[in-house]
Amino acid sequence: MQLLNKKPESLLDVKMHYCPGCGHGIIHRLVAEVMDELGIRGRTIGVAPVGCAVFADTYFNCDMIQGPHGRGPAEATGIKRAKPDTIVFSYQGDGDLASIGMAEIVHAAIRSENITVIFVNNAIYGMTGGQMAPTTLMGQKATTCVEGRNAKQAGYPIRMSEMLATIDGATYLERTTVHTAPGVVKTKMAIKKAFQNQIDGKGFSMVEILSMCPTNWGTRLDNPSEATKFVAEGMLPVFPLGVYKDACAADKK
């Protein structure tokens, strides 16, 4: 019998705590496959966030650090500057990166820190129990906006990739999704490019990945298509997929 697929070496064989239908498991696996394929596991240090992916430090089979909410890019900066021959990635959710850690991500891009950021956008706070995120859609219900997000009280969702694309220091920014199989394939390609950029010393790369949170969206756990429909019909119009910055081909100013 021929072995066609196996668990990547960069992911430990432990039970994950993620809910059914959650996108984190897929994204963890994609990051791990990329680490395997690029042969960088042995020199990679990952930064785990606060939020649902807090336990990422126990799942990835490389050195890991877990620190304060939103400060991943700052921690990654310290690690990369102290140990420039390591590969450093920061794995963050939308509350972590686009709310409390807004300053850290923006300034890591401004400094063009040679790091890779995996930004999982599921438009909700997961770990704390479904509160409104900075990326929560207009009208989307959350435990801190029970009638749905309204502009008067909570303003509008932030598009991180578009905003970071205005920064000279940002090298590579792409938004992908994992709600479809082709989306998963494209996401892996984007993650690989984001790591390759770091290996090549090209500076700040971030992949924003639209992902599902059936538990806190209130979509049915036994019918994943409800959640994928939310991504397709709710998120995609607000967060269009695509490459927002690619300064790899041309030299940066």
Partner: peptide, 26 residues
Amino acid sequence: GAFVQAESEVSAINMVYGAGATGVRC
């Protein structure tokens, strides 16, 4: 060595948290 002017004190201490985790005197 490496010097970073951080965007805030919060960021600066977390950079040191990261660098310190690598065993470097920071």
